[in-house]
Nucleic acid binder design. Structure first.
Length: 233
DNA sequence: GCCAACGTTGGC
DNA sequence: GCCAACGTTGGC
């Protein structure tokens, strides 16, 4: 019944809106309390062998209006920019893997702001984590589309982090472009060969390796035509 | 609006 | 703990 996960809706971040501060139910290890169920963190496409421990992220949000239980889910990168201090809390995630990734985030880490469920999906800009995981207050609000009646105040199920706008990408990097590269890289063992955007497409909060992150940043400076000719690189 | 992929639920 | 039914995500 719960929503899957993803998207965020505003709310002022403000350092302590819950007095109790992160830690309360939030926390450290993404992996640990987790084994109770099967979900959890383990990269499932991962024969990668490498324990990774991620430092870069990709977070999906919807830039176009869509009503869910009477509430507009729209929250694009322009909306983040418009927040006080250009900071917002990433509430509404209702998927264990995505939640666990948020719990693994550390202040200062960067991520991509990805536009999903829209005309042209893709990466719009860069954000950074400015507050570690703490309880997502929307889980306790019956009027919120992401209300979770099964979550107890003294043991919150869902967490969120605060993110801050860093900058727009120099050009929008579309899903289509990334997909072409991913496909190519699968055969050439290139940097995007295992990108979670494709191997775990439905995850709304996902990790990137440093290599993936850096490679995508190099695409910013490439002109698209050159890209289209492919075969280079 | 369709629907494939995949996460979740609940019966057994 | 398996697995079928069901619900959601999100590209197209």
């Amino acid at each position: 019944m719960m929503r899957q996960s993803k998207r965020k809706r505003v709310t002022s971040p403000a350092a302590d809106e819950n007095g109790r501060g992160r830690d309360a139910g939030a926390g450290q290890e993404a992996t640990r309390g987790a084994k109770t169920r099967k979900n959890v963190t383990a990269p499932r496409g991962a024969s990668d062998s490498r324990k990774a421990e991620y430092h870069c992220w990709l977070m999906k949000s919807e830039p176009e209006s869509r009503m869910e239980k009477g509430v507009d889910m729209k929250f694009g990168i322009e909306d983040l920019k418009a927040q006080p201090n250009q900071v917002a809390c990433w509430d509404g995630v209702r998927n264990y893997q995505a939640r666990n990734f948020m719990r693994a985030m550390e202040v200062g880490q960067e991520g991509f702001f990805y536009h999903s469920n829209c005309k042209e999906p893709g990466i719009a800009g860069i954000i950074k984590i400015v507050k570690e995981a703490y309880p997502d207050h929307t889980q306790f609000d019956p009027k919120n589309p992401h209300y979770d009646a099964s979550s107890k105040k003294d043991d919150p199920k869902w967490s969120m982090v605060d993110v801050q706008f860093v900058r727009m990408l120099k050009r929008y990097i579309s899903l289509a472009e990334l997909k072409k590269l991913h496909q190519k890289h699968k055969t050439t063992a290139g940097p995007l060969r295992n990108m979670a955007l494709f191997t775990r497409a439905r995850l709304s909060v996902q990790p990137l390796t440093q290599e993936e992150f850096d490679y995508i940043l190099t695409l910013e400076d490439e002109n698209v035509e050159q890209e289209e000719r492919e075969g280079d690189d």
